[in-house]
Design a protein around this nucleic acid. Structure first.
Lengths: 411, 411
DNA sequence: TATACTTAATAATTCCATTGGAAAAAGTAA
DNA sequence: TTACTTTTTCCAATGGAATTATTAAGTATA
């Protein structure tokens, strides 16, 4: 059922706009807010009064005046509420409490201990209970946000498919919600990352944005028209399982030539080891010891920067394959920004530059001019910021849309 | 600038909901509308009064009662207003006036006469002027809607790129708008078709929908979260220029292995002629005369249905390549429906079934279960219905969105 | 220092679409 | 004929924002 129009709707919308303005512009006066949004000063005054009352906003100092009463500056107050972010990866569960700006207060990392399926869920609930119990101050908890790899239906709160952790159609959100009696969110990890870039990164104004992550697997989060594209059951953005070679190698998904098989870290790692075993001279061998028979992504990136022959060649190969996939994305989504994230691209500007360069001649000119290939604008805590973003986006970002040309009074 | 909340907003939203309900459910009483949308009867009464006054709605007869006053039935009144739809293709310009249900009243088809660039635009304006002058009744014209192939920025009203008609960065919408002083819309043709399926076809409830057209070129229109994905400059949905073969043939766009080069009608046609010239036995030769040295798509489809060896083999080849592209779409968009349209797929259920069958083993199971490959649900006038849809969608479909979980009062 | 001018914030009032309740209209059931 | 239903409309009340006026708190200048 569509929501109908009533006075409450007006108020919520305006309060949301006002709070968003304060969050975005930092120290800002009431009258400035009114001007920016074409709202009346009174509306702003009364909405701000409530926001102050609820602890979302504080008054802080006065601004400068060019002849008149000095403005009272308003600031977003992120520390009166907190939220709990949870990231579930193959090897570890990370839990943190954060303020409303996704700033971490306390973070704990636990190994998954090989738990899978129902045992993993029980383990998670236990960890969360301990963590929640340790939060003993007067801040108000606005909810819990969980992110996890795989196909996740965020609307229903279901993990449809996670073959490594052996989760299939698990109603994780409802379990947690019932257990803690706190509003709970659940989403796919790459979806969370792209929301993080959109809400807390450098790409807040970008309406069509793609985040690609290259690590154990290859995935993506896609924002179309300012909204996350989740698809029918949460499976949108499976970039790793788009094919770039019709005649390519068979993938576990049944398709041939999936990009994941060319550029994921396991694929790359395998390629490196093969070359080493074949006796190829490379600096990468120095990272191997009798205790550690593998190379890490960051070691690889380091070797690329030293100009190591093998590393540079393989890095270029990744760029080559990746750019083939990226061209398809540009032609399908016409995005403004494509962010390359994950272990392999981290600190690897050479790779990013190579992709930007390589797609140039393979892309329709108009679309190439629009797109910028770049790196993540968030730091190392992008996982927790992602989890926070899922919750905050849903709770506070309240928008009106009317197709593409804005709202008009033409009915 | 975001629209802010005021009383006008409430009214527009509710009127839009009410009109939509009447359009959708046909004969319906005021009290039924109120119940369905959880609006008060009074609100419905006053909104309906205005809608009747403006000619969008009429009262028509009474319904049955189970003990009480009989309901006065309301109906959408599509014939008090009209709109002008224009489709510009490589070979012809089609103009029609339609009612609010996209029912064509008068349609005219003109050859483009080889005009391109500015000459084409002048020719178009001349044709439109004559057509508009011939509309001499008391219906009110709500606007003009133009659709055209190529990269079109509908927000700005610009044809960015149409290499065949030699249009580059042409501000077509503003030209027409100024010339006729009528609200004007401009959009890409496949975008229009997918909107037509969404508004007037069998897929009105589908939130993630893709329309692929295979003809002179290969294009697509994509609906994500109930909204058209247009991308940054209107270039989204260039499915024809997504590659399925990293090692494939060089395409005019600079990329290799673009699907357009495998399955467009020119590509298919070339393949057929080559086989015929090589002496291959096929029923298709009977379509060739000394006057007509080519085969049409519908002749090809006919031959497929007769079981002609060559036609069947080539049809299956198309299905094979197309399914490779479709798998990528499924993995990226997780859509509920993919519609195959255009000359080559028209009446070609064999092709559609083959694609549905072929993607089965190449797609992640969860996503395969969601998707249905099917044919257009509109008749032969899909072009004009498409043009009408662009306008009507923008003018009447007014929605509230709040991320994915619906609106809540939780701020 | 006094006065005029600016700008910000708030208060009082007005405006207006929705709502809820009452009433009217138009029936059905017995 | 009477009692009950259902649909529709009328009317006053509600509660948001907008408008206008007022107060607060400054600056600029004679």
């Amino acid at each position: 059922m569509k929501r109908t129009g009533d006075l409450k709707l007006i108020q919520e919308l305006n309060r949301s706009i006002i709070l968003e303005t304060i969050r975005k512009y930092g120290s800002i006066s009431r009258s400035e807010i009114a001007k920016k949004n074409e709202l009346s000063p009174t509306t702003v005054t009364s909405a701000v009064a409530e926001l102050i009352n609820e602890g979302y906003v504080v008054e802080g100092g006065t601004g400068t005046s060019s002849g008149g009463r000095k403005p009272i500056l308003l600031n977003f107050s992120p520390d009166n509420h907190y939220l709990i972010g949870v990231s579930i990866s193959y090897s570890k569960i990370t839990i943190a409490d954060m303020n409303l700006e996704a700033k971490i207060n306390m973070k704990k990392v636990y190994p998954t201990n090989g738990y899978t399926g129902a045992a993993l869920i029980n383990y998670l609930l236990q960890l969360l209970e301990d963590f929640y119990a340790a939060q003993q101050d007067d801040r108000q908890c606005i909810g819990i946000s969980l992110i996890i790899q795989g196909i996740v239906d965020s609307k229903k709160g279901v993990v449809h498919y996670n073959p490594v952790l052996l989760l299939e159609d698990v109603y994780l959100r409802d379990s947690v919600e019932a257990h803690f009696n706190l509003p709970t969110w659940l989403d796919n990890d790459t979806n969370a990352y792209v929301l993080a870039e959109k809400n807390f990164g450098h790409f807040q104004e970008v309406e069509n944005l793609i985040y690609i992550t290259i690590g154990e697997g290859v995935g993506s989060g896609v924002i179309v028209n300012n909204m996350l594209s989740r698809g029918e059951s949460g499976g949108a953005g499976e970039f790793g399982h788009t094919s770039i070679d019709y005649h390519g190698e068979l993938c576990s998904c049944g398709n041939k030539g999936c990009i994941e098989n060319y550029i994921s870290w396991p694929a790359t790692s395998k390629k490196i080891m093969k070359e080493i075993e074949a006796g190829k001279e490379t600096i990468l061998t120095t990272y191997l010891t009798s205790d550690k028979l593998f190379i890490t992504p960051s070691e690889f990136v380091e070797a690329v920067h030293t100009g190591d022959g093998l590393a540079v060649a393989i890095n270029d190969e990744i760029a080559e394959y990746l750019s083939a996939g990226v061209v398809n994305l540009v032609h399908l989504f016409n995005p403004e920004v494509i962010i390359l994230g994950g272990d392999v691209t981290n600190q690897n500007q050479i790779l990013i530059d190579a992709v930007q360069q390589k797609i140039k001649d393979k892309t329709l000119k108009t679309l190439y001019q629009d797109v910028d290939i770049t790196t993540s604008s968030l730091g190392k805590e992008f996982e927790m910021v992602g989890a926070a973003s899922v919750l905050l986006q849903d709770k506070f970002q309240f928008k009106l849309t009317h197709d593409n040309r804005g709202l008009k009074t033409n009915l």
